[in-house]
């Protein structure tokens, strides 16, 4: 299994096509090629954080500044960011467009990811965070644009789940 070069490119191009100019992220395997593109792109400001909850604050700052922003994280990073999501974003009606790599689900060979993968959707539902799965590289750009639009119109966190089908070859 390798991370999909073509589909990482499709996701990054989708982010760009949605008008996003600012990205916060914590590197993870599935996001590696994506982040490399972000780092090399002079029109995108990439801010890497030490822990995903920081990115909730960075995203809020970017939103206040008027800068279109998405957050890239692994599902386990989403767990670590939860209080920021609830007590900053949801409490103050601040939109978040989160692209979350969902490790530990169908086809997962690594035991350490599995517990997180099993509970991810339940936690998203518990937090009333609307989510969709991104599986098809042909559809992902539209899904990113829609996720961003919905986060802004609902002033709410929104999650697009990047699946194994999309991120691995």
């Amino acid at each position: 299994m390798t991370v999909s070069y073509d589909n990482s490119k499709a996701v990054f191009e989708g982010i760009k096509a949605a008008g996003i100019t600012s990205i916060s992220a914590l590197p993870e395997t599935w996001l590696g090629l994506l982040l490399q593109r972000a780092e090399d792109d002079p029109d995108v400001d990439l801010i890497q954080v030490a822990k995903e909850e920081e990115a909730i604050g960075v995203a809020a700052g970017a939103y206040f500044a008027g800068e279109p922003h998405v957050l890239l994280m692994q599902n386990h990073g989403f767990f670590g960011a939860m209080n920021g999501i609830i007590s900053l974003a949801q409490l103050y009606s601040i939109p978040l467009c989160m692209l979350i790599a969902v490790r530990g689900h169908w086809g997962e060979p690594y035991p350490w990811h599995t517990r997180g993968g099993i509970v991810t959707e339940g936690l998203l539902r518990a937090l009333n965070i609307p989510y969709e799965h991104a599986r098809d590289p042909e559809a992902v750009a539209k899904q990113i644009a829609e996720a961003y639009t919905f986060s802004r119109s609902s002033l709410s966190p929104v999650a697009l789940l990047l699946t194994r089908d999309l991120m691995e070859d």
Binding site: S22, S24, D45, I47, V49, E53, E54, A55, I56, G57, V58, A59, A60, G61, A62, Y63, F64, A65, G66, E67, H69, N83, G84, I86, S87, L88, L91
Partner: peptide
């Protein structure tokens, strides 16, 4: 802006603001 919860994130908000402004 008064961050009345989410302890720890004031400086992260500051970074997001400063970076773009």
């Amino acid at each position: 802006f008064y961050l009345q919860h989410a302890m720890g994130l004031a400086s992260s908000i500051g970074l997001g603001l400063a970076r773009h402004l």
